[in-house]
């Protein structure tokens, strides 16, 4: 029996599901080994009978929580797809302010009070609402990693994320350290698995895959200070994908 797979999205750009489509010809293999039963971005059919649910996006509202809990109930395995689902990602940036304040900034005087569509709470990652079995981090996800996770789930090998930092992949790519180019990089504290794609293209790591289990934050801050990065600038960079109130 092929595992039945469904995709769902919450507050997100839907770019992670797009990476599944971006597997291009490999999609033909994918639909050979799993049965895709719901994939709103690409399919009309949908079903509540599935084994594996891939969930993209952050959770913003009570109505989203309800839907997510239904998905968790139906799914044997729930995989959080992408930074928004895994850690909250950029959606978390707004948690710096109160809900009322951000509503006012965007919707100004419009009458949205009591309207359930606009009834938001501070951004949550998926695992703040339901249990998550596996995570495919990144903004967007690395499609090769997605393919690997699907293959692993299909043959019964528990997917495991790299436990080492982006620097490992960056060194193997023989990049010039972006610090040497006068840039800022979160590679040393960020979980690898992206093949160090940003530093490889001359930009610093933004931490979209989330921190390691035991990030060396103090050591990293020392290094940033050594390279002349101000505390304010550090806060902004650390917060981009990994916002935590009052801390970096």
């Amino acid at each position: 029996m092929k595992p039945r797979v469904a995709f769902f999205d919450f507050a997100s750009c839907e770019g992670c599901q797009l990476q599944v489509i971006n597997l291009e010809e490999k999609i033909l293999d994918l639909i050979d080994v799993v049965e895709v039963v719901s994939f709103r971005e690409a399919m009309k059919e949908s079903s509540d009978d599935y084994d594996i649910a891939f969930v993209e996006g952050s959770i913003m509202r009570p109505m989203d929580e309800e839907r997510l809990k239904r998905i968790r109930k139906n799914a044997r395995i729930l995989v959080a797809l992408g930074a928004c689902a895994c850690i909250g990602g950029v959606n978390r940036l707004r948690n710096e302010w109160s809900v009322d304040e951000v509503k006012k900034e965007v919707y100004d005087e419009a009458d949205i009070e009591g309207n359930r569509l606009f009834d938001v709470f501070p951004t949550k990652a998926v695992d703040e609402v339901v249990d998550v079995d596996f995570r495919i981090p990144g903004c967007p996800i690395n499609r090769e990693e997605f393919a690997k996770v699907v293959a692993h789930l299909a043959i019964g090998k528990e997917p495991r994320l790299p436990s080492y930092p982006v620097c490992v992949e960056c060194k193997k790519n023989e990049n010039i350290c972006v610090f040497e180019l006068g840039k800022f990089c979160l590679g040393p504290v960020t979980r690898a698995g992206c093949n160090a794609i940003c530093p490889t293209h001359g930009d610093g790591c933004e931490g979209c895959r989330g921190y390691l289990d035991d990030p060396r934050m103090e050591a990293a801050k020392d290094v940033l200070r050594k390279y002349g990065v101000s505390f304010d600038e550090m806060m902004k960079r650390f917060n981009m994908f990994n916002y935590r109130k009052g801390a970096i």
């Binding site: 620097c167 490992v168 193997k172 103090e218 050591a219």
Partner: peptide, 13 residues
């Protein structure tokens, strides 16, 4: 070791 990022660069190069 307090200052170490445990990034592995020293062994990788």
């Amino acid at each position: 070791s307090k200052k170490c990022l445990q990034c592995g660069s020293c062994t990788l190069v």
